[in-house]
Design a protein around this nucleic acid. Structure first.
Ligand SMILES: [Mn+2]
Ligand SMILES: [Mn+2]
Ligand SMILES: [Mn+2]
Ligand SMILES: [Mn+2]
Lengths: 156, 156
DNA sequence: TAGATAAGTTAGCCATGTCTAACTTTTGAA
DNA sequence: TTCAAAAGTTAGACATGGCTAACTTATCTA
């Protein structure tokens, strides 16, 4: 309660930023979008392997809501990136790097969802929003979410 | 404190969802990314008009951290979408539709930033993360952010 | 075990959003 | 008032991530 200044009608101040800082922000968003496909794929592949024993293109296509050729193309990109291992017409496996990335993404995903749920948001909305938000949450913000989550758990 | 079940080591449950619901979530993310360029542009254009009197391609390019030809191309897309009005080599104006979209985006942006700040996140990180997150926040979630913000204001 | 069906791939198309190089228009200073 | 510098545009390239159509391979069932 030490520093109120003068805003009455305006709910929150607009933060003024240097052009260069702002540009960096947009660059960060673009980078996040570049990694997004890989993150979502390894995450889903890990979950399919866990729940179904293996990850098959049909299933992946169904879960993402895309057509099979899209999956084929993207899987070959993941392979080129060293995240999956696989032979044509066979199931898909994660490399060590893929598994590590998947674990980090699943953890982040769970935290984001749990955090949204803790705000009283319904499950469907929490999952839908988290699917996009997760890729834009820095380590700092993720930690803040975890912290807030602990608070809400002890306080309830 | 009425419904603890049985998780001990696992911090949060993974929400199991029907393939179709999951696919819808990813479709929502893809749609958000389709509107993203338009949203960020009208938002920035509105801010430039407000602070500098007009919105010029050079300035837009600098703030986004992209090259001028990218701005030219994107502005022509916005024009085709009916969000801006403009003649070659002149400054850029928002149409009524553009102004409306800009206002909604600016409001949403401010709320997301304010919410992140309320979690104790530093300004730079809040702005950077918000730039991506804002496009994935549903009305429901935005309202939850506003609500949490009110709580944190009264409680502090 | 043959043949039908399901799964997966290939080829080629498209939209988006970025870039560089080269050109045009506007602006402003001498 | 000219002309150089700054601003803006055009053309053409590229990567990404979707798609359909047509083909190939694998699986299952009669
Ligand atoms: Mn996602
Ligand atoms: Mn996810
Ligand atoms: Mn943004
Ligand atoms: Mn995004």
């Amino acid at each position: 309660m030490t520093k109120l200044q003068s805003q009455e009608h305006e709910p929150f101040e607009t933060v003024d930023r240097a052009p260069e800082a702002q540009a960096e922000g947009f660059a960060t968003v673009r980078q996040a979008h570049e990694s997004e496909m890989a993150e979502d794929y390894v995450e889903l592949i890990a979950e399919l392997i866990e729940s179904r024993g293996e990850a098959r293109p049909v299933e992946i296509a169904e879960r993402f809501g895309v057509k099979p050729p899209t999956v084929t193309k993207n899987i070959s990109r993941l392979k080129a990136a060293g995240l999956v291992r696989r032979e044509p017409y066979r199931a898909i496996f994660l490399t060590d790097a893929g598994r590590e990335l998947a674990e980090a993404c699943r953890r982040r995903h769970r935290i984001v969802v749990a955090f949204l749920l803790s705000l009283g948001i319904d499950e469907e909305t929490a999952e839908r929003d988290a699917e996009g938000i997760e890729h834009h949450v820095s380590t700092t913000t993720l930690e803040a979410f975890e912290h807030a989550l602990l608070q809400s758990q002890s306080g309830k």
